[in-house]
Design a protein around this nucleic acid. Sequence first.
DNA 1: AGTTTAAGTCAGCCTTGTTGACATTCCAAG
DNA 2: CTTGGAATGTCAACAAGGCTGACTTAAACT
Lengths: 170, 170
Amino acid sequence: MADGRPSAAISGENLLFLTDEQLRQGIEAMFFAYRGFTADPDRILADMAYGRAHHRAIHFINRAPGTTVNNLLNILGVTKQSLNRVLRTLISDGLVESRVGRVDKRERHLYLTDEGRTLEGRLSDAQRARMRAAFRDAGPEAVAGFRQVLEAMMDSEMQRAYTRLKESGA
Amino acid sequence: MADGRPSAAISGENLLFLTDEQLRQGIEAMFFAYRGFTADPDRILADMAYGRAHHRAIHFINRAPGTTVNNLLNILGVTKQSLNRVLRTLISDGLVESRVGRVDKRERHLYLTDEGRTLEGRLSDAQRARMRAAFRDAGPEAVAGFRQVLEAMMDSEMQRAYTRLKESGA
DNA sequence: AGTTTAAGTCAGCCTTGTTGACATTCCAAG
DNA sequence: CTTGGAATGTCAACAAGGCTGACTTAAACT
């Protein structure tokens, strides 16, 4: 409905005519691209008893070693019960190590074991390969735009988490 | 690991240095942005007995009215059992109508009812509002780049589906 | 006539999300 | 010192939405 009718949006000096059709194409692009984005790690995980939730935990523990459970909870946006089930299996399988905090012994700090890092590498390599190919195909300007739009699409809380991770990284 | 070490990629005339860190930021941007992308419709659906799967079915039936079950299956990338469960509830709730094909009576052609279109509108409006804000914030060049990268990230099969939908649209 | 295709259905399983209730441990404030 | 609250862990139950496998029906194709 309303195809062709412009959803006008005025932004400072810029007057953008964003039709519903253009927005819908953006929506569909996100849907199809996210499928591709997760496809490669999913294939690797399917062989083991793990799923996407395990991948996410492993990714962010690798990204910020020593992170607390609570911090991970905020980043992942799931309940502690849900995360706990995933962490329990990862710990008992020897991929993740949970150390009691030194300053606050209630906290658990999470680290990947060597085995955990190995799996992380396998998953990351697969996901990065696709991202690298996409970045290469699209070119540097497109990559900058890609990141700008994605950042603008996040909830402000996630935007802060993303920025924090970005700055801690490089 | 390998932070700082460049994953070089040569693309025709362009020499891109894509570090693992840059790729990881792209990966995390996708993760956080997709959460935002689904957040608004999810909130609407949570009040009803519906979930994201119902939203996807409604979206693509609206997009291509009269589509067959098999076609929808290919676009959504799920099993017919999974889709059927969703379609059954949508049909019995009066949001979707299933008509026997005229030329091939084995096929069922799917259409939204008035009630279905109403819900579709509510969900789309919410999702488009966020997309519109992100597009406006980022600007037209960024939007073009965003779409280029996403398209390059899709599996080729999905890329074809996406292009077909795009061309059928505007 | 026999095979293939589209769709639907039943049963069962898995992952991953949810609530709610409750125990433990420890820090910090009164 | 005691009490309240925070961080964590755990148990149970449940739901959504994926999956596989097996089977039926009806129509179309060869």
